[in-house]
Amino acid sequence: MSVTVDAVMLETRAGSLAKRSIKTTTKVAGIRLAIQCMDLTTLEGKDSEGRVRSLCAKALHPAPHLPDVPSVAAVCIYPNLVPVAKEALRGTSVKVASVATAFPSGLSSMEVRLADTLSAIAAGADEIDMVIDRGAFLAGRYREVHDEIVAVKAACGPVHLKVILETGELGSYDAVRRASDLALEAGADFIKTSTGKVGTNATFPVAVTMCEAIRDYARRTGRRAGLKVAGGVRTTKQAMTYLVIIKETLGESWLTPDLFRIGASSLLDDLLMQYEKELTGHYAGRDYFPMD
């Protein structure tokens, strides 16, 4: 029997976690943590080699005038651009994550999806962000979705696999929970909320539900899987709430790039602005931070 979720109480709980007051030293620690756990992302049709090189530079040194700001965890890009990012980030701690399996819809044949994955890995991707076939999931073909994840995981080998559930298309928290359980059982290293390509992306209640699935799975099997929230995370306040959700649902030991990621692009600029504000007591304008 699948675990069920009550929407009213879940949203109440998520709302109360969003009200945690994060100030001063906690805010500084949280901003550094959010940067360390970030997958700095560009996933647009117009992405070019130049754009990716510029993103990699920023991933490595987010704010040159604040040298103690850490690098982000990874850059997240389309498979074609993996070689460019790999080259730009050679010898650094920053990983290269590639979306794959016919991102964002996943609506290609299994052969194409696997080939997509293998080519990204061959190009040097350290991490794969796959999408599940939501059509199959919503049609109740859970076994099929499970087996596809298993197949992609097998193709990945030691390469880190994040499974995107696209929770905005799943329709209910019950379905989010079921998809989370299924992906974890299938061997996902991470479960990830969203592609960022649909109307509803990561939300606090969805993150709580996925954390609960990860916690229960760890309790049952001993294996600790991670969570990646992605899409629509733009403000420091949102990022702090995700840290709170992780801390109070999974525990502080999950607050590491090995087990938690935030997929975002413009969030980094807001984090840097808030970071400098905490250090200096005043806000600097946007132009004091390199764009991207």
């Binding site: 945690r20 007051s21 994060i22 906690t26 805010k27 943590l33 840290l243 607050l255």
Partner: peptide, 10 residues
């Protein structure tokens, strides 16, 4: 060591 301990927020 606590890495994200909430500072007092009176």
């Amino acid at each position: 060591m606590a890495i994200f301990e909430y500072a007092p927020a009176p």
